[in-house]
Design a protein around this nucleic acid. Structure first.
Lengths: 87, 87, 87, 87
DNA sequence: TCAGATAAAATCGCGC
DNA sequence: GCGCGATTTTATCTGA
């Protein structure tokens, strides 16, 4: 009495569930691989004297819409100046 | 033989465990309360025309060591310029 | 020409902004303190043989509504069995 | 007419930096795509009556080492019973 | 081994 | 109301 393809004495379609779970798992595996690749790039860059932390910031800045980025920069400047942050 | 209040036949000192857990829970409750207070401050500020997102950045900038902050700013400038980010 | 007595060359009411930011900072400081207290409790518990990771799970389980918790448990059981997870 | 490979009046090798950043960006883009695919799978599963939250737990359980998983389960049981959590 | 940084997951709040 | 995006919390990993 394990799982029988036909009957399904519970309300689950086991094969469908299994298929979904396995698809997710394959995709997660790919994602993990890519994440490792990214780490390697940063490690290599670090080995050549670049600061990975700064690089990460640059990457995230480049992903922003230029206009939004400028506007945000301006606001930070404005608020920061108001508090003497950059004095 | 299940668990009787008096004997304690498993390896756990239940009262000690319970005390730890309850201490954590009280502290977590306090933390939650404060987190809500913080949200309220931002909400109030927003109601008066301040941008909460920018305020959060300002708060986090102010928490950094000024020297570190300046150095990081300079590096971002350097890397960003090298890539034409601020052009 | 409201806010800053002397200069006021920008549209910000500096004192209001400063007040908000400082309120947030005080609250953040309290939150940090409490977070440290929580860590200490776990560290002490660990020193007495309790597993902090498990304790965290227990704390989060206790925060859930009992009915919800039971329902979720049942669903995990159901899905897990369907995939032979607990075999 | 912007960055000249030869002169380098700053300490950065711009092309090397640019190459690293662009490699990261390509990989990040792939990662994002896969993350979206994963969301789609969960959405589709949800459309067929499966609970995505539970599915995520199942996926993460399946990624654990079976022995570790059993041990953790047992500990949660132990601690939970000690606090009357499952009563 | 422990703290700090990074990444993942869960939660929350907004906009459609 | 529901998905989407942002924030926060949790867990993992690295380096001291």
């Amino acid at each position: 009495m394990t799982d029988t393809p036909s009957t399904g004495h519970n309300s689950l379609n086991n094969s469908a569930l299994r298929a979904y779970v396995e698809r997710v798992e394959r995709l997660e595996e790919e994602k993990r691989t890519i994440a490792e690749d990214i780490k390697e790039v940063y490690a290599e860059a670090k080995g050549n004297g670049y600061d990975p932390k700064i690089m990460r910031k640059i990457v995230s800045l480049r992903q922003q819409d230029p206009d939004k980025r400028k506007e945000e920069r301006a606001l930070i400047e404005l608020y920061g100046d108001a508090l003497g942050l950059f004095a």
